[in-house]
Design a binder for these strands. Structure first.
Lengths: 169, 169
DNA sequence: TTTATTCCCTATCGATTTAGTAGGGATAAT
DNA sequence: ATTATCCCTACTAAATCGATAGGGAATAAA
């Protein structure tokens, strides 16, 4: 289960992703009000993402937060790992935070581990291939489909060719 | 993340699944010792699964626990839901325990929800199609592959045709 | 029928995590 | 100088997790 922190983080950053790139920074208070997130709670979350280099910030009047990178380079998997920790259901199948089971005799043939590795990979395939921009596109596609005669379905990100993570490279 | 309870439950039931079907019941103490699980802790878990009808039990000397159904009809998804609750990362995409987000304006076009629904479905596709017997088969396949010249790979359960949940029907 | 063994049941407990609040300090635009 | 904003630490109430304690009820075997 996602914690509220991770959920808030994603909603807040999705909000920032909707603003014109390179525009003026946005106040925490505005994000909190629009997305209905407790302000002081959100403050701590954005603070961390700022330290992590996902956000930039400016202090004082006219200050606020903005995305430090283009929205199509910020992956949900990365955000969730930073806030909630590893995606893996059990540590022995985590790629980013592997830890062996203290008791497991032969790890390579542990049935539970084999299944949970599949689960981890399935989650990671989605979350590491879906950016803030992708998420927004899919939301827009649903909204568009309600209004259009010929709805244009947007494929889930993991069914498409992976994007380069840095579009400037 | 799986709780220890769910992990213990699966390991304990996998242990029971390895015994001859219809054989004598197995003591909690034996399972706990073999699988290195705190006995009193395991007791509470098996008690619940007994109430849920997954296990049968017999008291007194020669007593113990056994699977109440064939191992190929007991799905990991079912076990995990009973012990840990819903698979879904957020309640608004849960099939078995749906609850709306209190704040979400238009649920159908919420980008986060669309992505998390994918994640839930990916997890459910694996865990609801993998039985205790499947898990064991995959473990055996790995062990076999280490010994054999031409290893026989066993496909993940969700890539095969779904089995009927009750083989007697 | 007694006794030993096993499951059944409830209560409790310490540690950790979660979800938030409080209260300032540092910085920068006006 | 003033004021708006981010920055930082500490604190807290409640829930959850992982486990232990201490018996009660049933039943097989002596």
């Amino acid at each position: 289960m996602l914690t509220r922190s991770a959920k808030y983080a994603i909603k807040a950053l999705a909000y920032l992703a909707r603003r014109p790139e390179g525009g003026a920074p946005v106040r925490i208070g505005d994000i909190a009000r629009e997305e209905k997130i407790p302000q002081k709670f959100l403050e701590r979350i954005l603070l961390q993402l700022n330290r992590d280099g996902i956000l930039y910030s400016r202090r004082g009047p006219e200050g606020g937060y903005g995305l430090a990178r283009p929205a199509n380079t910020i992956m949900l998997g990365d955000l969730i790992r930073r806030i909630d920790g590893p995606l893996a259901p059990i540590p022995c199948v985590s790629v980013t935070a592997y830890r062996p089971c203290p008791d497991c005799g032969d790890e390579s043939s542990c049935g539970l581990r084999l299944v949970m590795k599949e689960v981890r990979d399935a989650m990671a395939n989605i979350l590491d291939q879906t950016s803030l921009a992708d998420m927004q596109k899919r939301s827009d596609a649903v909204k568009g489909a309600l209004a259009e005669t010929r709805p244009t379905a947007v494929k889930p990100a993991h069914a498409r060719k992976p994007r380069r993570s840095n579009p400037t490279s």
